[in-house]
Write a protein that binds this DNA or RNA. Structure first.
Lengths: 214, 214
DNA sequence: GTCTATAACACGATAGAC
DNA sequence: GTCTATCGTGTTATAGAC
């Protein structure tokens, strides 16, 4: 409440264990007993440090989403400055949106599942948090995309960005299982290629000709 | 076990209530008490008719996914026949993949959420079922797509179909909340337009130029 | 096939000693 | 700040009467 006691190992251990377990089994599928056991701390520690299971879950998610969104906006601002008076290239916009997610996941793959869970099927108590975190960056991206895709209506831009988000989250959710699902066809051992492939797809989809009104 | 007693109202009432509640709150977030109460049947009826909560969940999902996959393959076969010796038009392939999902959802929107949940973050005991249901149609679509997208490797085709699936499921998951999320910008009151918009995006993404090898 | 009653257990949260 | 012990509640599943 006052100064953060950043040397509190228990606090961090709980967050790390919870991130992994919440990602793999969801909020309802994970118990505080499992978390505290994995973290090697006492059962009562969660309620002492976080107050409740829901508060812990919220903190776990905010700890991962906030740096990502900050980095997104930072890269986007750079791209905007680089473009000067011109519209920001579509590919640069998409890159700034997608890349931070997968870069944050380096070495901690379960985190991608956590992202996916929270945006695709968040627990009910997270709706408010998700709306806030989602809306913040959405507004910014819509603004930038609109100048790079002037032939599309704002609604059209929103829909398409929604699709891109869905593609990204679905890949994120299955980053660990894609090799099995594709029966060895798809490899997940080249993160750079994975990101580039997804960006290629997203840029093409976003830039598709306007749907003619029926 | 022997002949299906198709006039068993209790069986159906449980399935319908379970579909709605599982879709909204997930497997772990739904209790048998809630389901039986919503269905207006006795608590013990679930175990009598289905054996366990997991068996009920499996049955709920298979009841929705199987007709969809059958319809997909039927439409795809028609398109193939219509195309004769020529490759099936990309748009026809995508249409056959996406349209049955949203048509099945007419009048029962929670069903879309169920789809999304099961493919994006299925409960652990569903992994085998999902792999089976996914693999079945995936193989067929990969084969057809390969002839329509000969410039892409099989792996590339799989990845892109994965992205399309993600877009579709994300829209499905938020079909009820997109108006709120977009602050009124996007409307969900024209299902035909929604399907067409998604197909436009998917076709453009699938048909994107091949990613140059770095 | 439907019901009541309950077994058997797991859950989140907390009180209170250290 | 950490621990043990436990409270109160809710869970799935089932036994057994009707």
């Amino acid at each position: 409440m006052n100064l953060d006691t950043c040397d509190d190992a228990t606090h961090e251990r709980i967050l790390n264990a919870a991130e992994k377990l919440f990602a793999q089994h969801g909020h309802d599928g994970t118990t505080l007993r499992e978390i505290t056991k994995a973290a090697g701390v006492n059962l009562a520690a969660v309620n002492y440090h976080f107050g409740s299971k829901q508060a812990l879950y919220t903190e776990v998610f905010q700890r991962v989403i906030r740096p990502i969104n900050e980095r997104r906006l930072a890269i986007l601002a750079d791209a905007e400055q680089l473009a000067g008076d011109q519209p920001v290239p579509l590919r640069a916009i998409v890159d700034s949106f997608i890349r931070p997610v997968f870069e944050m996941a380096r070495g901690r793959p379960p985190f991608l599942l956590l992202m996916s869970r929270n945006f695709s099927a968040p627990p009910a108590f997270m709706h408010e948090v998700m709306g806030r975190e989602f809306g913040k960056v959405a507004q910014r991206y819509l603004q930038v995309l609109q100048t790079s895709l002037p032939h599309l209506s704002p609604a059209e831009v929103f829909w398409r960005m929604f699709y891109v988000t869905g593609s990204m989250l679905f890949v994120a959710a299955h980053s660990q299982s894609i090799e099995r699902l594709s029966q060895g066809l798809c490899r997940s051992d080249d993160p750079d290629a994975s990101i580039r492939r997804l960006i290629d797809f997203a840029v093409a989809g976003l830039g598709a000709p306007k749907t003619p009104v029926a």
